[in-house]
């Protein structure tokens, strides 16, 4: 539902094309170049030594190409233009709960170097909005824009810029979605065997702590328990994860009677659940009498919150 809202908005903004060119506050100027080369630590004299620059391939002073974007930055009190496509798309995603942002890619192409006195303008358009994707940061949408810098009619530089707008941890469900049940289970804290967590499995436990059953994904393949290498030992691929719907059926189960297990009350049931997504996940099956348990029983995920550090995934009989 929210996906449709976002996709529709994206289509509308993409169809609007380029925003009106917005002129830089100042023309390309030496003082700003000087500030920039000082801060960056740039020592190339073509940017600030007129004599050297005159004898160089440039035949005179030029501005550092990587400053292209600097000229049209909005500045301290600047406002986004009304037709700025990234601003419009950001507002849509914010409203859907994807409030956090991180830039992922910047691809700048410089058609020529700029010279002091030239006055550039920038216009931008929305290229694409792709999602929802499960990423290490959370569920989010990749928003790609293309900016063109012009002097008069001439395009002097271009940039493809991509950001991930994501739902910050803790705000794990769209407001209208069903939240998985989280059970405060401090009584389990007494000696419960805590998981050893590695760089490969941390996302899983971070997920349980926010009520998400996260299943590692390598391309199209889901994998649980997770690991550091994709199917077939391919070191070139990297995983993300999906948040499982949290429903499945019992593939097998154990009713544990003896001996005592730290943090469990005897007898207890442990279920090996085949998720609707196809992988199996183990967890205690709570709030059920052993006599009512059978292979094929439909269950849904529930989270046992032990303390700030540990939340265990578990199962309950589906309503």
């Amino acid at each position: 539902m929210s996906s449709t809202t976002i996709s529709d908005a994206a289509q509308r903004i993409v169809s609007q094309g380029d925003s009106a060119p917005r002129l830089a506050r100042d023309p390309v100027n030496q003082p700003m170049v000087n500030n920039w080369v000082e801060a960056i630590g740039e020592t190339n004299p073509v940017y600030n030594d007129p004599g050297f620059a005159a004898r160089s391939v440039h035949g005179g002073l030029v501005a550092p190409p990587a400053m292209a974007q600097v000229w049209t930055m909005r500045g301290l009190h600047g406002q986004r233009a009304d037709d700025d496509p990234l601003g419009a798309m950001t507002a849509v995603l914010d409203a859907e709960g994807f409030t956090s942002v991180v830039a992922t890619d910047s691809e700048q192409t410089y058609h020529r170097y700029l010279r002091p006195g030239e006055h550039v303008a920038a216009s931008a358009r929305l290229e694409s909005v792709v999602g929802p994707k499960q990423t290490a940061l959370g569920e989010g949408w990749f928003v790609t824009t293309r900016t063109s810098w012009t002097v008069g009619e001439e395009v002097v530089a271009e940039m493809l810029f991509r950001v991930l707008k994501f739902r910050p941890p803790g705000e794990h469900r769209a407001p209208d979605a069903d939240r998985a049940r989280v059970v405060d289970a401090p009584e389990y804290a007494a000696g419960v065997l805590r998981p050893v967590i590695s760089a490969d499995t941390a996302f899983f436990w971070e997920g349980t702590s926010v009520g998400e059953l996260r299943i590692q994904r390598w391309g199209e393949t889901l994998r649980h328990p997770p690991g550091p290498v994709g199917t077939g030992g391919d070191l070139a691929t990297t995983p993300d994860y999906v948040v499982a719907r949290g429903t499945g059926t019992l593939y097998s189960y154990v009713v544990h009677h003896a001996p005592k297990v730290p943090g469990k009350r005897l007898p207890f049931v442990v279920a090996l659940v085949e998720l609707d997504e196809g992988v199996r996940v183990l967890g205690e099956l709570i709030d059920v009498g052993p006599e009512d348990v059978y292979i094929g029983l439909a269950v849904s995920v529930v989270f046992l919150r032990i303390d700030d550090e540990l939340t265990l995934p578990a199962w309950q009989v589906a309503q």
Binding site: V192, L193, R194, P195, V196, I197, S198, D200, T201, H224, P225, S252, Y253, V254, H256, P259, V261, P262, G263, K264, F268, V270, L272, L282, G283, E284, L310, L312, P313, A314
Partner: peptide
């Protein structure tokens, strides 16, 4: 230990329980 993290905390913590599944 990482392998065990997916069943010990869930309560599959003895050889008998592991086999019982």
């Amino acid at each position: 230990g990482i392998d065990n993290s997916f069943h010990y905390p869930a309560g599959i913590a003895t050889p008998a329980a592991m086999v019982a599944m």
